[in-house]
Design a protein around this nucleic acid. Sequence first.
DNA 1: TTGATTTTGTGTTTTATAACACAAATGTAT
DNA 2: ATACATTTGTGTTATAAAACACAAAATCAA
Lengths: 233, 233
Amino acid sequence: MLKKSTLERIISEDLSDLWNALRPEEKRIITDNFKYEHYKKNQIIYAENETPENLFCLIEGKVKMYKSGIGDRVQILRLYRPVQYFGYRAYFAREPYVSSVAAFEPSVLGVIPMKLVEEIIRNNNDLAMFFIHELSRNLGGSDTKIINLTQKHIRGRLAESLLLLADNYGYEDDETTLKIYLSREDLANLSNMTTSNAIRTLMSFVTDKLILVDGRKIKIIDEQGLRKISKFG
Amino acid sequence: MLKKSTLERIISEDLSDLWNALRPEEKRIITDNFKYEHYKKNQIIYAENETPENLFCLIEGKVKMYKSGIGDRVQILRLYRPVQYFGYRAYFAREPYVSSVAAFEPSVLGVIPMKLVEEIIRNNNDLAMFFIHELSRNLGGSDTKIINLTQKHIRGRLAESLLLLADNYGYEDDETTLKIYLSREDLANLSNMTTSNAIRTLMSFVTDKLILVDGRKIKIIDEQGLRKISKFG
DNA sequence: TTGATTTTGTGTTTTATAACACAAATGTAT
DNA sequence: ATACATTTGTGTTATAAAACACAAAATCAA
């Protein structure tokens, strides 16, 4: 179990704009009402249609926000890393969750009642601006994603996803191995394609010397090449 | 040219949450710094990559927010009707516009410097909450749209679009004719398909007695049927 | 009014990607 | 270690939708 001090260290080191927006007394309120939750690999943190009540802060691990669609198809919408916040959108929209969140790997979350957060927002404009900024960036990203997913071809979409993973989770010490290990299915769900096509396209990237693959370990060896494929479609 | 009083009437009659969030002195600041702009049919209001500086309020007419993608393809992202606001997302995100806005028909806009809006936000939490709420709803909608556009088949996507148009702009006095007259191309760009496919699918809807078409006039005669097609995919 | 341009409509061909089917490899539980 | 489930990999087939090509109609301009 992490200690409160660990939380403060993580959050402040990560220059969390949210935490920095708070006044000392507000920070106290948050830490006093803050709960840790541990999630196992693949465990669902919240699910579509549930009522949003908490703000989640990912402290350790990696999680995916996804939406199930037609048939058994799933679209991964966003990825989160420490220290990022989620769960607030549906609360602010006054509607049930439209997507679900699950842990990619064992994860530790900080949980704070949204009611409390909203109260603080009402007295702290910096915090309000934090959420306005976050929401605005997410909305821009979502609009851009629509183009990526609908207009790019399979290779473009997969290349895009690999670059997104690199961007989001970075590389291992070798500077080439993606620091996240996804199943082919997750990769497919991120890229709007079937699992077989994710496998096949990944293979073709290996053939084209863009990446190296060893099980779930992916090494990016020609980022520029991937970028070109992603851009062109 | 519309008079100031007309503005106040329109805005307050439409129970605009934004306007209602303002204190009297703030309302004065807004009306004092408010400018009308008239746009012709198909005229661009702002374009991708430009720097956002204003909040736009659609007072009269209809506009589309769209994003150009690969090749000549365009995706219509959102539709606006009076009295709705746009143009603020990119400003809040501190980034250039990622989409463009153009008038479907002759439109009147209210234009307010975002700098001013931001100043007011910093002193008025109700206004901050207005934007948090708007952004949250838009983000939920954008996430849902991703599923619609990527996972539904052509018929489902077009049905969805027709229902969206009905929802957004309503019907003429006959209660069946859509109160918006789009080109087949716009319809296609709304539904992520080619123009020929929009034409063909529209035809097939006529054959299936779901709609009636006369030029750009579309009558919805089996909304339930469309809803079923849209849901199934 | 006439000619030009844009929009709409339709048939045909091509292609990207899903769907299906199954084998091999890997992981997991007993 | 053994059986069982899941994930990965590969070939084949089916199909939805784009691409192309062109005619007819409608709209616009001079």
